[in-house]
Design a protein around this nucleic acid. Structure first.
Lengths: 200, 200
DNA sequence: TGCGCTACCTACCGACCGGTAAGTTATGGA
DNA sequence: TCCATAACTTACCGGTCGGTAGGTAGCGCA
């Protein structure tokens, strides 16, 4: 069984798509990464678009697992959401990679999804809105208000995660390290502020 | 004089690069948009990279002009920064386009700038940090702390601007309109919260 | 033994990529 | 009037793209 080969291809594809985007990576690039030809890749995933789809489904599962852990860790909706959001920025490379892929999806979606008709982010956003509206201060808010607030937090989190290589290039490694530390602290405070504060 | 032709090419390039990224647009695409051949484009801008550079310089000038207006409008550093940040999200298509280009630059920078060695965003960020540290509550903060806070606000602003087509696709036009309204209101409150609050 | 299936391979296709070379056409100044 | 220059053009180049066609090698099972 070559489930392992398939998994290797999927893993390489995830990394490369996150780094360079759907249009910035060729299937030959991905196949090279695991020492195969692109025809071997096409044998496992019949088209590039299907491979990309499986990559997005993979990170959706990752997010869902993190969410389940956050929910299991506490009975307080506020704590659950805080843990979930902070988990996205915990500085492991894998978390940053997922953020990048999310951002790529937002940017490239217009071209890709409008032809494919698949909106990978919809369920993800709706779950976050549901978690937000379980928080006492947001219980009376409309779905739209909750989504707006959630999106601001997602922006603060993912924008930074995405910027890492650029900020490192601009400011150098040691100053970026200090920035990274400061960011984590301030983000937690920002989340608390938003969660405490009702919409109007 | 064909300064106009040059300008037309630059304008088309700005729109297309914002929509599809550096690697998602060919110089032939851009030239087609103004009814010329790609060789005509290469006559005005010798390479694709130079054209892209001029596009980024153009939006830098746009940002600088908006900043100058915000500074001229008030003597209060807090009001200046608020006006500047809110101007980025004022829902005109051009503002959203600039946000997309900024985001593309953050994402693609690793490939592009690391070879070119040009960091278009550095001056932009440093000016924002300077404005932040002119605000009373942030006067004692370190540059890194101010940058972290600024980056959270930039994230909240630009992430939303970038997501417009995707959110519109997921939720439809009318629900997106409601979200857009809610976003503006809540963003202003978020900016106030961050500006009032000292770092530690 | 032999059949079918999985997992790959080489060879190729038409389309497109950024860029070069070598023109043509129009303008404007000496 | 001549001639340089600007503003384009067509015709290419080598290379890469996603995908197809048609294999082959090995393995499990009847």
């Amino acid at each position: 069984m070559s489930q392992t080969t398939r998994d290797h291809l999927l893993e390489a594809a995830t990394v490369l798509f996150a780094e360079r985007g759907f249009y910035g990576v060729s299937i030959a690039n991905i196949a090279d990464e695991v020492g195969l030809t692109k025809q071997a890749l096409l044998h496992h995933f019949s088209t590039k678009a299907k491979l990309y789809g499986e990559v997005l489904e993979g990170i959706s599962r990752d997010f869902e697992r993190v969410r389940a852990q956050a929910i299991a860790a506490s009975d307080d909706p506020e704590a659950q959401l805080t843990v979930y959001l902070l988990a996205m920025i915990s500085t492991t490379p894998k978390d940053a990679m997922r953020s990048r892929l999310l951002m790529r999806e937002l940017l490239d979606n217009q071209r890709r999804a409008s032809t494919a008709g698949v909106w990978y982010l919809k369920a993800f956003l709706e779950e976050l809105v549901a978690m937000m509206r379980a928080v006492p201060a947001w219980r009376a808010a409309s779905a739209v208000e909750a989504l707006a607030a959630i999106y601001q937090l997602l922006g603060a989190i993912n924008y930074f995660a995405v910027s890492e290589p650029t900020l490192r290039g601009i400011f150098g490694d040691e100053r970026f390290g200090a920035l990274d530390d400061a960011y984590g602290e301030q983000l937690e405070r920002l989340i608390q502020q938003v969660l405490k504060r009702p919409s109007r």
